[in-house]
Computed example of a mutant assay.
Amino acid sequence: MIVITGPTGNIGRHLLPLLLESAPAAGEELRVVVRDPARLPDAVREHVEVVIGSHGDAGTVDRAFEGANAVFWLVPPDASLSPEDAYCGFTRPAAKALAAHGVGHVVGVSALGRGTPVADRAGLVTASLAMDDLIAGTGVAYRALANPSFFENLLEEADSIREKGVFTDTVDADRKTPLVAVADIAAVAAGLLLDRSWSGTDGVPVLGPQDLSPNDLARVMTKQFGRPVRYERQTLDDLHTTLVGYGLNETFVRGIVDMKRAKDDGLDTGVARTPDTASPSTFEQWCARTLRPAVLS
């Protein structure tokens, strides 16, 4: 039995079809934890067991992990909490349930940065790494998917790109860093969940095929959209003011700002890209498939 949390989110909606395609041949049953089962496609609900509730709730994870061999663990973003509560606080009931039910393997969504000089002051990433330690401390075999920023973050900029030809971030315009498509993360997760010949605790970097700067992204988008697109760098103070203005928890906002600062200080560049850490989807491919329709719709 494989349990999937966050099955309707950015990564989960790519992961679930991969598991549905391959799990039956491997003799695996699937169970999903979801607040609203109506968000699952009809074809999915017919082939999975559904546990309704939040996977941050002790009763829900106790039901979900009973008889489970493996769990895909993803913490949903909750900007009403502090980073520690959003990651470790949310995960503590699951950690207890993993140990209580003797779950053997867990694959979790985490972040790059462990071992870098800025890892202990990287806001949300620091909290994510602490979550990894919490899960590993239960004694399960654990693989933390160590991810950089996602291509999909640019979807939040679709309106600005369409209307102004501008996207923003806080990093230097020429700083090249790894970026990844969520579909590639899902593919790595599926492989680990279906082939559980691994043991112990480790991180699994998923780095995309190449490092890219904001100016590189702008050049690709300009070509793809047939119109100029440029990058504007936002100050960390302006980011803080904007996010607080949206009503986000002040401590969570500070976690975002600290993460952004750490990324500009090299948080995501501590792992070398190799055939094992590279993933296949290029920004050009993702842009044509996903961002271009969103911008030009």
Results as ranks from 00 to 15, higher is better:
L19C: 11
A70D: 06
V229F: 08
A58P: 12
L124P: 02
I161S: 08
L129D: 02
Q210K: 13
L243E: 14
I256Y: 00
D132K: 02
I2G: 08
S199C: 14
R114C: 02
E29L: 10
V51P: 13
G270D: 09
P17M: 01
P178C: 03
V257K: 05
F151M: 07
D85S: 11
E49Y: 10
V140I: 10
E46I: 13
L194D: 07
A262R: 02
P77V: 05
R13H: 12
F72I: 03
P83N: 10
G67E: 14
L20D: 09
A294V: 08
P83F: 02
V220E: 08
E66R: 15
D36F: 11
A288H: 11
G270H: 08
Y87Q: 09
A111G: 05
N153V: 09
A111N: 08
I4Q: 10
R230C: 10
T242S: 14
G89R: 02
P83C: 09
N215T: 15
M1Q: 14
T177C: 05
L212M: 14
P117C: 04
A68K: 04
D42Y: 12
T170F: 01
G102T: 10
P214D: 04
A146T: 12
A119H: 04
D78Q: 12
T235P: 11
G191A: 08
A189Y: 02
G200P: 07
R31L: 13
F151G: 02
V3W: 04
Y87E: 09
E232N: 10
S279D: 00
A70W: 01
H240Q: 14
V140W: 01
R289D: 13
T282A: 06
A99H: 11
R292T: 13
A141S: 15
S22C: 05
V171R: 10
P228G: 04
T91Q: 03
V188S: 05
G255A: 01
H105W: 15
A38Y: 07
G59R: 12
G203Q: 04
G6C: 11
Q224V: 15
V44R: 09
V125K: 00
D78I: 06
F65N: 05
G123V: 02
L236M: 10
V33K: 11
E232L: 11
D172I: 06
Q210A: 13
E156T: 13
G27I: 03
W73R: 03
R35M: 12
G102I: 05
R273I: 13
